[in-house]
């Protein structure tokens, strides 16, 4: 029975990890950059949700509709004014710039909102469903379901609209995409904004699950890296599968070796993957990186 509980809890949190990682892998697939500020944008989204709730009594699930566009906009601005120029220099430059942005944003949060842990205590936050011996956290279940829906919307966008196909095309072969008349900077900005918006969804959902504090982003960033590499850099399917898998691994680890060491298992797994099969489960051979 305990395994079923671990499996379910793991899949639920894994769904949210998948959502976060989808954004990261999308950004990598299209622009070939490792976005170190991804986790911190999750933190920002959670803070926005928290403040909407605390100051204006807007439930975080409603607040989602405000948080997501806000984050998408922030993402677009970040790309347009900073990251784009770094990409022009080199891959390493884009990594360092996103690290720099991460430091700035984390500390801005620290200054603005202090290091205190903040959480939303709305009616959902502490509820859970009982099903026989199984206990399912309600906010986590809602998060999973919404994540599922949003992922569906994302896929519909990517497969049924011209812009979405342009994004996929750009991630497969940028040169060829440009020859089709795709406007590269517009697609990059859009992809980055979408990636961050996805994180915005996750943030709004998680604000009633975890407490937020300025350095929260770092943990989630690390998990996302593991998921994305496991799934294959640039692969959306991989991010989903990887997210669910890592969710289960982490939850199981926490049960057997304790919460403070739960990362150890997937970190070691991460290192092994990097050595043995860096392309991950579904990764393509990206010439600039994978040879």
């Amino acid at each position: 029975m305990i395994f079923l509980q671990l499996l379910i809890s793991g899949i639920l949190i894994g769904g949210v990890y998948a959502l976060i990682s989808l954004g990261l892998t999308l950004i990598f697939g299209v622009m070939r950059i490792v976005n170190f500020v991804h986790g911190d944008m999750l933190m920002v989204a959670m803070y926005f949700s928290y403040w909407f709730y605390t100051l204006y009594s807007v439930d975080n699930y409603i607040g989602l509709f405000l948080v997501v566009p806000a984050l998408g906009l922030l993402g677009a601005l970040m790309y347009r004014f900073v990251i784009r120029h770094a990409i022009r220099r080199s891959h390493e430059a884009s990594i360092l710039v996103t690290i720099g942005l991460s430091i700035v944003i984390q500390n801005a949060a620290l200054l603005l909102w202090s290091a205190d842990y903040r959480s939303i205590h709305n009616e959902w936050a502490t509820r859970s469903l009982q099903w026989g011996d199984l206990r399912i956290s309600s906010p986590l279940l809602i998060a999973f379901i919404v994540a599922l829906v949003v992922t569906g919307i994302l896929f519909a966008f990517l497969h049924r609209t011209y812009l979405g196909k342009a994004i996929r095309a750009a991630s497969m072969d940028r040169f060829a995409a440009v020859l089709m008349g795709v406007h590269p900077q517009r697609i990059f900005t859009l992809s980055f904004a979408i990636g961050i918006a996805l994180v915005g969804v996750a943030g709004a959902l998680l604000s009633s699950v975890f407490a937020v504090h300025p350095t929260l982003g770092t943990q989630f960033l690390l998990v996302s890296f593991v998921v994305v590499v496991l799934g294959g850099l640039g692969s959306l399917r991989g991010a989903i599968l990887g997210g669910l898998l890592i969710g289960v691994v982490e939850t199981t680890s926490a049960y057997f070796i304790g919460s403070s060491m739960k990362q150890l298992v997937y970190l070691l797994l991460f290192i092994v993957i990097l050595i043995v099969k860096p392309a991950g489960l579904f990764g393509k051979r990206i010439p600039e990186v994978n040879q």
């Binding site: 590499v229 403070s260 150890l264 970190l267 990186v289």
Partner: peptide, 26 residues
């Protein structure tokens, strides 16, 4: 890390430092 290129190398080193931190904390 011999065959790790580009960002993979950086990520591996991050993971290793993180593992050591967890060990040191626990």
């Amino acid at each position: 890390t011999l065959r790790m290129k580009g960002p993979f190398f950086g990520l591996a080193t991050i993971a290793i430092a993180e593992v050591l931190m967890i060990v040191a904390v626990n």
